[in-house]
């Protein structure tokens, strides 16, 4: 008791001699900060509304799908189809989240504070990209897990049935990863070009919106090769094309997939190229920004 005199001592400035973490943990801190930003954690209540509205929608849709299946015994939407069904919602999510991640920092002049720290120049955009892709994947994959759990507890076939469900779920999650990578890479690149969030959001929606009619035009030209290549023109149909080739009847009823002929591997290659191209441009963009 005699210790507590109630006096606050100003102990002055303390030097820090403890450990300083390396590149990995720093990258992790930036990545987690980005992931929190996307879902509005650590920010105002207003910033939480939209992301959690979207989370609510996808979870409710998944719960309804699972409930319908358990009642009438029919699969309304397969795991892989879930991502396709939600694609427009995801586009709007990207249009809000990507500017939040990068445009805001460009605008407020925060970047010099990052680049004057022992942070590799490429780590900033890569961590942000990984945050966005993770968020999108959680958004598309999480509801699939809800659907899986719903099915697993209502199936009457026992462990074998659960195992079969799992074999359907895993390709669905991989397909969600492809969606997340393509949408995240394009969205973040567009957002990194401007500090104005409204412009960035509009630009992202435009990229996806404007490319869809091109597919429509190319698809009716009188050349089978062009028709089969048409779906490369828009990121959404490109991903659909990869799905048609790689997932087949997990995604489409037999014979209903995109008419891409035997060009499936080309679509997969194009998707990889698209993501890689976006990453290269993103890194180039930040090399330039960092010296300003």
């Amino acid at each position: 008791m005699s210790e507590s005199t109630g006096v606050i001592h100003d102990i002055g400035y303390q030097r820090y001699t403890g450990p300083r973490l390396g590149r990995g943990p720093v990258f992790g801190a930036l990545y987690l900060h980005g992931l929190r930003t996307v879902f509005g954690f650590g920010r105002s209540a207003k910033a939480k509304i939209f992301p959690w509205l979207v989370v609510g929608i996808v979870i409710v849709v998944a719960a309804v799908v699972a409930a319908v299946r358990s009642q009438i015994g029919q699969v309304v939407i397969t795991y892989a189809q879930f991502a396709d069904t939600m694609s427009w919602l995801i586009i709007f999510f990207v249009a809000v989240a990507a500017p939040e991640l990068v445009s805001r920092d460009l605008r407020s002049g925060v970047l010099p504070l990052y680049f004057s720290r022992p942070l590799a120049r490429s780590d900033y955009p890569l961590a942000k990209l990984l945050s966005l892709v993770t968020a999108l994947w959680l958004l598309l994959g999480g509801p699939q897990l809800v659907m899986f759990l719903g099915a697993a507890f209502t199936l009457e076939e026992g462990p074998r049935g659960v195992w079969n469900e799992l074999l359907d779920l895993l390709p669905g999650l991989l397909y969600a990863g492809l969606w997340a990578a393509v949408f995240g890479a394009i969205g973040l690149l567009v957002a990194a070009l401007t500090g104005k969030r409204a412009f960035a959001a509009g630009g992202i929606v435009a990229v996806f919106l404007m490319t869809t009619p091109i597919v429509g035009i190319l698809a009716i030209l009188p050349s089978q090769t062009i028709n089969e290549l048409a779906f490369l023109a828009s990121p959404m149909t490109m991903v659909n094309g990869v799905g048609t080739w790689a997932l087949g009847d997990l995604l489409f009823e037999r014979g209903e997939g995109l008419p891409i002929g035997g060009l499936g591997p080309l679509y997969a290659f194009a998707a990889v190229l698209l993501v890689a191209g976006c990453v290269v441009l993103l890194l180039a963009r930040y090399r330039k920004v960092a010296t300003r």
């Binding site: 300083r20 973490l21 390396g22 943990p25 720093v26 801190a29 930036l30 900060h33 022992p118």
Partner: peptide
């Protein structure tokens, strides 16, 4: 706090 972590400080520090 965030920028402290970017400089390599552990979370609580």
């Amino acid at each position: 706090t965030h920028l402290g972590r970017i400089s390599g400080l552990p979370r609580t520090v």
